[in-house]
């Protein structure tokens, strides 16, 4: 499964190139000097101990951090050769191209139809026929169509089960036709069966999308991802009893390689459960 292009020698296209990314919350450094490529039509997994900055980096990729007062990103995040943080880039457009699925399913308190149509409507799509088509396509792509096809126009998104809600949220993200889908622990609130469905879905979606997923579940990372980035925490004692902690990218490699032959001891410790 992880017979990646790198190993087979075929040239890879990069969807997003993260280069020397630093994120601050106010004065506090949260993530230091992260550089890695997010390869096109691949699933990249972010793993690492709690608080190491996985979500922070992920949210930095579609400028969701802009919504947090005091959050600041340094370095370059290149998307189609343009720095996402360049002054002339509109975060609204970035978020449409680089969509996001959140840890907790967050449907709008509207019908399933209106949930999916929310994004296209933002872009000004008004034609009913077109919206109908987008909604059906998205629900099908997110593998939830069969479960809701009878009542998706009237049923509230909140009336779905957690796993269905999460797939609906994925469908909602797909509906605006992004390039990249960011997922922050999308299965952490779901049972194993719902989790498996989402994982299968991700494998299907990766043909058309580039996916980045944050997960705490090693098996999940090995099952679904092509590449894995392991983040870890650096500490520095400032004065007695006080210390600064920030996250760094410890290792990035094809998933199989990272889990079978980690280059660093701390990676090996983490994936074998001796750390974090």
């Amino acid at each position: 499964m992880v017979a990646t292009a790198m190993q087979t020698g075929v040239a890879q296209t990069t969807a997003i190139e993260i280069s020397h990314m630093k994120v601050y919350y106010g004065e506090k450094l949260a993530v230091d000097d992260v550089s890695l490529p997010i390869l096109k039509n691949k699933i990249t997994a972010f793993i690492g101990p709690s608080g190491c900055g996985k979500s922070t980096v992920l949210r930095g990729l579609n400028r969701m951090n802009d919504l947090i007062p005091g959050a600041r990103v340094e370095g370059e995040i290149l998307y189609h050769g343009r720095n996402l943080y360049a002054p002339n880039v509109d975060p609204v457009e970035v978020r449409r191209r680089i969509g996001m699925v959140f840890q907790k399913p967050n449907p709008f308190p509207k019908s399933i139809y209106d949930n999916i149509a929310y994004g296209p409507r933002l872009l000004g799509v008004k034609s009913k026929a077109m919206l109908d088509e987008i909604v059906e396509m998205s629900l099908k792509q997110a593998a939830i169509w069969d479960e809701v096809k009878n009542d998706f126009r009237t049923k509230s998104g909140l009336a779905l089960s957690g796993g269905q809600q999460q797939r609906m949220c994925i469908a909602r993200t797909i509906a605006v036709e992004p390039d990249v889908i960011l997922m922050d622990e999308p299965c952490s609130a779901l049972d194993p069966i719902a989790t498996q469905k989402i994982e299968e879905l991700m494998r299907e979606l990766v043909a058309n999308f580039t996916i980045v997923i944050v997960t705490h579940n090693m098996q999940q990372a090995t099952r679904v991802s092509d590449y894995t980035a392991f983040y870890s925490i650096r500490k520095q004692e400032t004065e007695v009893g006080k210390e600064n902690r920030w996250g760094v990218l410890a290792e990035y490699a094809p998933t199989q390689q990272l889990f079978e032959r980690p280059a660093k001891q701390e990676t090996a410790d983490y994936i074998s459960g001796r750390f974090g």
Binding site: R95, G99, C169, V176
Partner: peptide
């Protein structure tokens, strides 16, 4: 809930939308 705003912004909504 903040999650509602995040969902909206995440889909590329402007502040006003």
């Amino acid at each position: 809930p903040p999650s509602l705003r995040e969902a909206s912004f995440g889909l590329g909504a402007t502040k006003w939308q």
